[in-house]
Amino acid sequence: MATLHLLSQSPFTNTQLKSCLRLLGDTDGLMLCGDAVYVLNSAPELAPELQVLAAKGALYALEEDQIARNCIQEGVVQSLNYAQFVALCCQYDRVNSWV
């Protein structure tokens, strides 16, 4: 019974990421879209919670948003195209979009 959380806003102007990390369960996943990928720019000093997620393979990002913003962190995050993104959503019991 896991949830995939979708974030879309910059972690530097919005508290989405911080709040989301508070309510993340052990088997939940996190997908970064839009300006949310900027959090990867601060790697390797990612928040410990994000490092844990990455180590579990539960941290994803939309590849085109990463490329557009030059926020590519290989080995930290799993980069997905749209088809893979859709497939990922189907793997989870529910998807929570943070607007």
């Binding site: 896991a2 369960g25 929570n96 979009s97 943070w98």
Partner: peptide
Amino acid sequence: EDGALADLINRHDQVMTF
């Protein structure tokens, strides 16, 4: 408490955030 939030979400079929 914060620790109970993930459970709350995972008890429901769907979730929407505003």
